[in-house]
Amino acid sequence: MSLYSRMIRWRACQSVKSCCSLHKTALSRAKVNLEQVARFSGSKLVCNQQEVEAPTPMRGEETESVADTALQHDDYFGLKNLVTVRDLFEARVHLGHNSGLRHESMSPYIFGERQGTDIIDLEQTLPLLQHALDVCAHIVYRGGMVLFLSRNQQTLPWVERMAQEVGEYSHCRPWKRGIFTNASSIFSTLPIYPELCVFLGTQDTVFEMHLGIVESSKLLIPSIGVVDSNCDNSDLTYHVPGNDDTPAAIHLYLRLFREAVTRAKAKRKEDGLSLDPVAYDES
């Protein structure tokens, strides 16, 4: 069955039940949302709420949801045409560090050494970047929360502003050891963990790796990271070899992630996966 016809079928049923087939968390969120809305608005929503009250989570091969179909698509959010090797080159993504600072794990991604400076292979960076953007968009599409992290003082305000504007979260301040792994005692309550961590630079200081990488790996949270030629990529789930120091390069990454998140949210609304009260008002 084609994606389009699946969507038609999806639209036709438009029941909250199938919206909630995605995930238990999504289901509970839907309940909360609907309860809140029902408290403030008409009886139509209460009717919907009753539908939710007896949920039959749809799972298995024969009841694939729209999100699963979207996942089978090669480039569901059209992110492959967003960036070219030329764009990466002009944003100075290819510039690495001095060859003496090279990290062993980065050597497969280095094109060569030009007068003592490592040059990152953009032919390899591009597919990895597109892959990472696609994964990020799919997680947002399913209602996942994304946390953007960076420890670069110069780019801190841009990262925080971007995260705020797309409705996601950022952490660019010094990382207290145990923010993820010992959260209950640091925050004295159980926190909500993000579904994805995006590191726009994988270093905390010039000598140390960002602690968030190991902590997110420990807590089974996938991570995307821009790794420069002097960084360790082994603990990241998805790594993108590229320059993490130049403002032009950071601007490019931020533009791409902003686009990925925005498109995913738009698609989410379009496909009826959105659990916002507004979406129910329309139906």
Binding site: L22, H23, T25, A26, A67, D68, L71, Q72, S99, R102, E104, S105, S107, P108, Y109, I110, F111, G112, E113, R114, D118, I119, Q124, P127, L128, H131, D134, V135, H138, I139, R142, G143, G144, E195, L196, L220, I221, P222, T237, Y238, H239
Partner: peptide, 25 residues
């Protein structure tokens, strides 16, 4: 299971290419 599980399973990280000597340009 977390939201990311299906996605990471369907789109796993690409394998790391083998290490090679870095040439001078």
């Amino acid at each position: 299971r977390p939201i990311w599980y299906d996605i990471v399973k369907a789109k796993p990280p690409k394998p790391v290419p083998p290490h090679r000597e870095v040439q001078k340009i």
